[in-house]
Amino acid sequence: MKTLPTLGDEAVVLLSRQGGFAMVHALTRPREIEFAQCNLDQRTRICTLLEGCLPLTRESSGQGDQRFYQIEVRYRLNEQDDRLVLKVPEDQAPGELVHLWDKGEVL
Rank of each mutant, 00 (worst) to 15 (best):
G8F: 08
Q66T: 07
K2M: 14
D82L: 01
I33D: 05
P94N: 08
Q66P: 00
P94K: 02
G95F: 04
F68A: 02
D9W: 07
E90M: 01
L77W: 13
T28V: 01
G64F: 12
L54M: 15
L15G: 00
A93D: 07
M23C: 03
L97Y: 04
N39T: 05
Q37W: 10
R45A: 13
E51Y: 01
R76Q: 15
F21S: 09
I71N: 00
Q37G: 06
T44S: 15
L54P: 15
V85I: 15
R74E: 06
M1F: 08
Q18C: 07
R67F: 11
V98M: 00
Y75E: 08
L100Q: 04
T28M: 10
H99W: 13
V88T: 07
L100F: 06
Q18S: 00
E90H: 13
H25N: 07
G20M: 13
Q80L: 04
D91R: 01
Q18N: 02
V24E: 14
G52H: 12
M1A: 14
R43T: 10
K2G: 01
R76I: 06
M23Q: 08
T57I: 00
D82F: 00
V88L: 00
E72S: 05
I33A: 06
Q63F: 13
A36F: 03
D91M: 05
L54R: 00
V12P: 03
E59Y: 10
L107Q: 11
R45W: 06
L56K: 02
C38K: 05
E51I: 07
Q70N: 02
I46A: 02
R17E: 15
T6F: 11
